[in-house]
């Protein structure tokens, strides 16, 4: 865990706040943080890039079934396949978390700009950090599965 470990509890709080307040879904942080996630199967990832004094990335990895449940709850309408609504909802969750991380890092004296959110999805993929970035992966449980919030940041 890198020197941004002090903000991790606040990232957890922000994730819970986003889910309970806007997605209308109860979640819990469960399990020890990981240093990498490995191969990701049947999932969709939302991410925002961090640039400025410290480069990095904030990503949220959802299994497809959980992404559908989140989008259904978020939008209040049934969603049965990974489509533009799911991509948009997952991207917006990453965007909101990225905004929180930016605020937390600004409070530490960093000067950070955020990229627009983007998403990737697939049957099997790997999310690799640059070797000069510190990486932490935080597991969360939701009613429809486990998801991960990943923060990569330049030391």
């Amino acid at each position: 865990m890198g020197d941004f470990s002090d903000i991790i509890p606040k990232v957890v709080d922000a994730t819970v706040e986003i889910f309970t307040g806007m997605v209308m879904m109860e979640i819990n942080q469960e399990g020890e943080p990981l240093t990498e996630l490995g191969i990701i199967n049947d999932s969709i990832t939302g991410m925002v890039g961090l640039a400025g004094t410290h480069k990095g990335m904030l990503a949220v990895h959802f299994p497809n079934d959980l992404a559908l449940a989140i989008t259904t709850s978020f939008l209040g309408m049934d969603v049965e396949e990974i489509n533009e609504d799911v991509q948009d909802a997952v991207g917006e969750i990453a965007n909101m978390l990225g905004g929180n991380v930016k605020t937390l890092l600004t409070d530490k004296g960093y000067d950070i700009q955020l990229s627009l959110p983007s998403t990737i999805s697939g049957e099997e993929y790997t999310f690799l950090a640059d070797s000069d970035l510190q990486q932490i992966v935080i597991p969360f449980t939701a009613p429809a599965g486990t998801f991960y919030v990943e923060l990569e940041l330049e030391a």
Partner: peptide, 12 residues
Amino acid sequence: DDSSTMRKIVSR
């Protein structure tokens, strides 16, 4: 908002 999801959320 560029996110249609967020426009729906704000409207709701």
